[in-house]
């Protein structure tokens, strides 16, 4: 019948709603499938071939690449380094960043709750490393750690008549030099992150603690840290991923790309080396698959461990 509006039942509303949502989601999901999911699927496939990068029809070799990977000493050295970074990078970075952030926000000696003198200025300074491209940081530190008179650290040592320290050339030291650079680069961002977190902690809590006679250390451990725990967890997860993902600093900064003598190599560097230098794309993909599982395992563990009661305020 003409003129009669069709009833707008609840089903129809739901359908329109779903269509509306799907309309917005289709494109991002499609992009995600093409650029994220499909490369992963491809990597799993390539990992089971002997593809050397130029062939149009690589042979399927099953799990042979993984079997070889088990006996690859260099790869496991790299895994060890990633593991060590996974432990140390978050701990050191978060500890240092918390310390600085606390000083900038609540470490002042004046009355009330305030940062140390010039804290605004320091906040900007701390953020500088974050602004620099990773490759630039690597080249910069290569010069800083140079073993001759031109090195910023070794120059004064040589001038004092001491032997230069092989920060990057001594295999016993090189890894620690890399760790120091990674921490140096990461701290600034977390100082800012934690500062933002601390700024949102109600001032009254500090004042109450002060009235109760709490010192700076007590204020930090009893007030700041518990109230900042969520932010610290986020930082922890980010840094954990960063530790599994270290590549550019190692590749650009060290001799032999992960050397000397494999002393600084990491998983990503081994993947890159096997793929783009040895042209063993199948084998490199197998390493990538292993790295994928390490990352997923870390993610699961991090999510499990981070379930903790939240303090509401």
């Amino acid at each position: 019948m003409s003129g009669t509006a069709r009833p707008a039942g609840p089903n129809r509303v739901a359908f329109a709603r779903a269509r509306f949502i799907a309309g917005f989601l289709a494109l991002p999901v499609l992009l995600y499938l093409i650029y994220v999911i499909s490369p992963y699927a491809q990597a799993f496939h390539i990992a089971m071939t002997n593809w050397r990068g130029v062939s149009a029809s690589p042979a399927f070799v099953g799990l042979e690449n993984f079997r070889r990977l088990l006996g690859d000493g260099v790869f496991w050295t790299a895994v060890g380094h990633n593991g060590l970074l996974l432990l140390l990078l978050p701990v050191l970075t978060i500890a240092i960043a918390l310390f600085f952030a606390f000083l900038l926000n609540a470490g002042g000696s004046g009355g009330g709750v305030s940062g140390v003198a010039g804290s605004r200025f320091y906040r900007v300074i701390f953020f500088f490393p974050q602004v620099l491209a990773v490759a630039i940081v690597a080249v910069l530190f290569q010069q800083v750690l140079r073993p001759d008179r031109s090195g910023m650290l070794n120059g004064p040592l040589i001038a004092l008549g001491l032997r230069p320290v092989g920060f990057l050339s001594d295999p016993r030291l090189a890894f620690w030099s890399i760790l120091a650079v990674l921490v140096w680069q990461a701290v600034g961002f977390y100082v800012v992150l934690f500062s933002a977190g601390m700024a949102s902690i109600p001032r009254e809590m500090y004042e109450a603690a002060q009235i109760d006679g709490a010192g700076r250390a007590q204020m930090f451990f009893r007030v700041t840290l518990p109230l900042l725990w969520d932010t610290v967890q986020v930082g922890w997860i980010y840094l954990g991923i960063a530790a599994l993902d270290v590549f550019a600093i190692v590749w650009v900064m060290t001799a032999e790309h992960g050397g000397p003598d494999h002393s600084t190599t990491v998983m990503a560097a081994e993947i890159y080396r096997n793929a783009f230098q040895y042209f063993k794309f199948g084998y490199a993909s197998a390493m990538g698959v292993v790295l994928f599982f390490f990352t997923v395992a870390f993610a699961v563990a991090a999510l499990r461990l981070s379930r903790r009661e939240r303090i509401e305020f």
């Binding site: 992963y40 990597a43 496939h45 390539i46 062939s55 149009a56 590549f247 793929a275 490199a284 994928f292």
Partner: peptide, 14 residues
């Protein structure tokens, strides 16, 4: 996650 190198590989045109 991390495996940036992976997405740089493209499968061969079989």
């Amino acid at each position: 996650p991390a495996a940036g190198a992976l997405s740089a590989c493209a499968s061969p045109a079989g």
